[in-house]
Design a protein around this nucleic acid. Sequence first.
RNA 1: GGUGACGUGGGUGAGUGGCUGAAACCACCGGUUUGCUAAACCGACGUACUCUUAACGGGGUACCGCGGGUUCGAAUCCCGCCGUCACCGCCA
Length: 425
Amino acid sequence: MLELNFIRANKSRVLQGLKIKNFPQEGLQVIDDILKLDDGRKETQTNLDSLLAERNQLSKSIGNLMKSGQKAEAEAMREKVAALKEEAAQLEESLNDTKAQLEELLLKVPNIPHESVPPGTQPEDNEVYKAWETTLPELGPDALPHWELAQKYGVFDLELGVKLTGSGFPVYRGKGAKLERALISFFLDEAIKAGFEEVIPPLMVNEDTARATGQLPDKEGQMYFVERDNLYLIPTAEVPVTNIYRDVILDESDLPIKMTGYTPCFRREAGSYGAHVRGLNRVHQFDKVEIVVLDHPDKSYETLQQMLAHVSGLLDKLELPYRILRLCGGDMSFTSALTFDFEVFSAAQKRWLEVSSVSNFETFQSNRMKLRYRDGKSTRLVHTLNGSALALARIVAALLENNQTPEGIVIPKVLRTYTGFELLN
RNA sequence: GGUGACGUGGGUGAGUGGCUGAAACCACCGGUUUGCUAAACCGACGUACUCUUAACGGGGUACCGCGGGUUCGAAUCCCGCCGUCACCGCCA
């Protein structure tokens, strides 16, 4: 949620930003509506406050009059207060009304993009921020896509997942399961080495939590919902982990706060069909290690670069070819100010697969969750950032395809202490 | 799931209708004293909204788990919800 004061002070910048984010032209009116509503809110607030002040004053007098036995005067004042009360009740109702409307409108406005975000409406418009400089791996004509390799070596079984649950819920088996667990451990250990605190959060969250990071109200359809208990299955660890600091006022010296967490992620996703969603390309449940940073507004973009370096380091160590994209306005998430996607080249499919998304949300999430730090005598919203480091399913897909040999799948060196084997066959 | 107790500021904890935005103590912060540390003493010490001020600051309103109610007036009384703890039942 954008800060009201920011909108007020930077209206033209907001409008311009919304355009880059492909906010519908006819919806731009919402900004003026918001400001107008807020003007009304202030006025009502002021009026109500002075009414209540008067009431408090009178009440005090009544008490004194009663004590000194001046019943008649007290009675007269009581009537006066009764009239005030009615008026105050009306103002209060209208104030609550205005606030609710304001909130509703504010929730509709996406974050505005950082100045470096390129314009565009679709994935093709994303800017290649860092290309893969050396040649891409070329496999022979008999190279297999990962879903066939999985079948050949018993890495994971999607049909078994259908039996147990439904489509998009892979069952990892044997060395495949071990590989999955090795990757999780490797990613966590790397994050811990880089100074992140490991957390194991709940996999289900309540409505407040989902709203604070921006999943609600607009992306309701993306999450699984447990109706009976009013809980959402998390689509990413970002949601519970960032919310650890909801309604918290930090000391400036606490920043930055760096956390990492492994969780399964659940995505309903309307989804398309065909080759693009085959195998592990798109599933309803996948494992991911997430990194989350809460930082000082002046430092957050520097931190974003460090996060990019961290993720790059992981992919380097796994010896996977990748590129980094700077997402265009139209392809960015509702909540983000700047997002970089990492894509790994999956050599048999000859496709780039998104394995990480690293974003700075600036104060968009912290405003919703009232996450601040002490800045001298006042408080200020912190910047929140997060990134996948990394999403497992597609990493496994790329590893299987890129590392296939007639003897089996070659496990990258860094993982061997975790897997205990060098060849998956 | 059942029964009982309880939910006050960063912490402990006082407060059963007006003098309580809230005692006291601890922690934190500033200062005095001090060779350093410690101790002692003094002072400051919530958040949000709003009005006012060039600014420092000052005024007002709301908030004692959350929501509603009674009352001229509620942390304090009533109702609902949520949560915590204890005991019982069940259980990885």
